[in-house]
Design a protein around this nucleic acid. Sequence first.
DNA 1: CTGTTAGCGCTTTCAG
DNA 2: CTGAAAGCGCTAACAG
Lengths: 341, 341
Amino acid sequence: MAVTMRDVARYAGVSPRTVSNVVNDFELVSDATRQRVRLAIDALGYRPNLMARSLRRGRSGLIVLAVPELNIPYFSELAGAIIDEAEKHSYTVVIEQTDGHLDSERRLLDQSDRTLLADGLIFSPLALSHTELRQRSSDIPVLLLGEHVTDGMYDHVGIDNIGAARAAVEHLLQIGRRRIAAIGHQFQLSGETAQYRTQGYRATLEAAGRRFDPGLLASTPSFHRDSGARAMAELLDLPDPPDAVFCYNDLLAIGAMRMLSQRGLRVPEDVAVVGFDDIEEGRFTTATLTTISPNKRQIAAEAVGQLFRRISGDDGPARTVEAEFHLTVRESTVGTPTPEP
Amino acid sequence: MAVTMRDVARYAGVSPRTVSNVVNDFELVSDATRQRVRLAIDALGYRPNLMARSLRRGRSGLIVLAVPELNIPYFSELAGAIIDEAEKHSYTVVIEQTDGHLDSERRLLDQSDRTLLADGLIFSPLALSHTELRQRSSDIPVLLLGEHVTDGMYDHVGIDNIGAARAAVEHLLQIGRRRIAAIGHQFQLSGETAQYRTQGYRATLEAAGRRFDPGLLASTPSFHRDSGARAMAELLDLPDPPDAVFCYNDLLAIGAMRMLSQRGLRVPEDVAVVGFDDIEEGRFTTATLTTISPNKRQIAAEAVGQLFRRISGDDGPARTVEAEFHLTVRESTVGTPTPEP
DNA sequence: CTGTTAGCGCTTTCAG
DNA sequence: CTGAAAGCGCTAACAG
């Protein structure tokens, strides 16, 4: 079987206690002893048993990151950043995909198998309603990503969605667009993020003295590319189609641009497009994508940092952090400055 | 503190043994007792301590999936599939990003912190050489994804890269292309996958009676979009530029298409493009992307299945599984059949 | 069908 | 600075 601490202790002629001290870098060991123990460890090829350690310490060193889907680039990029960030705290990340299903999301807070091992949960809920979120309580610290729906029950990291939507729409107004549509509104109660973006969209139009036209607000069943394409098609079929569209994420925008090119329309000349998330993909679309760029590294760092603080025992009131964002202007709104020869 | 099995036992008036039986669905418990224990569990809100269970059982229920980067869509799509597949075996996946760094890859086989907890490792090495891979030996079962470089030392799931490259190039020949370039060759010894694709590319050209022109073989430092764009630019600057290009993954192809459109060239009229991986993104590029489509669900299922077999004690000789693939033909080689109005 | 009991490998209190 | 010993919560012989 595996070589244990006891084996090392015997081999080095010390007690397990001392081996533990060496392994965990406790300073109160004489250099001579430390040397001897190190040698024994190498000689025997000892590796600490993390399960035993976890059991004893009462912590697993694992956190769960629950997102809708890993193949939504925003989430895979964020997950990558969170994994890196967690590593800085010596934490390991387990990813759980909810597919936006209510059941999966419920199970997470119920301490299902997956979360049973974990010391904490970073959760980006999609289907779970406001109220339900508030009713349930998890044994481990939970940090919410996305909208601040929680009245001080959970720690939370998000961005100012209203402000971000405003930045997007103002940009479209600035470049002289007259009929600005939006793609990505959700009907479900749970889609708080979308609600806020719609709110920002509408408010900005009205502040600019434009009439809000409900016909230009396209709801989508998902945040995937195909939904964006379908929604764009519908908008183009209107008697008076838009000359600009603000999409609630980059995937929708990419689907919309695909549909525009299929219909033989040019971006941005015929229709300008703004996305949201700033995924890598948007830098290589045929018209590169103007988009709202949330600071993902900051989101990751704050999320892990906050959660870590809780795991370490902080018991203060729930905190909300708003991460930074900015508008990244690319070809899909302003065209190619100097077309290459 | 947390409520333990002992507490439940006391409450229900049975022994811990019986509680354990109930929790683990061992059939040899009378219905009456089972009922009583269930009630006790609910009443006390008992949750099994997975760390204790793991320690006792000698298994953590965790496997590590090590990939270069999660924001390479091929890997995030594959990771999603592997997570789903692992769940079927009640296994949880921890993702480790190597960034293709040699050190990170070495640490994985050395049983670093991250793999110390795990029962097995699914590993997609990038930098680690053939020989080094063979020298190191991990305590836990390891399954390799990618190229079959291992002479029976590791289980392995891959696809027939030579055959796949042939399918891609033959398609380009079939549609009448004369100067077919390739993007994605790697110089490093470790890039076995690229080597095989180059081999298939070259052999297919020669079998068709074409001369292999080394000038049309573009090496890239990475498999990212920007590398594809740069390589395409160089090919276009040749005195006699290609009229088709086979890219070793979809990201390179997308970068290449971006460069083509920047240079005012049309896909596929001026240059036809074939990719590799069939990531979602390729279905929404301005010319949708013709690509080699490996069966990712199959790869995930085989990888998890094989590894699970090993974890369960199978000690037979190493196996290699070749997953299926097919060529998915889209606009980037054959254009739009019937352009929408 | 159920109870008793030992022990997985580690950390940590308490002595010395 | 180091040793002895208890015990984290669970499972699985073994016994009945």
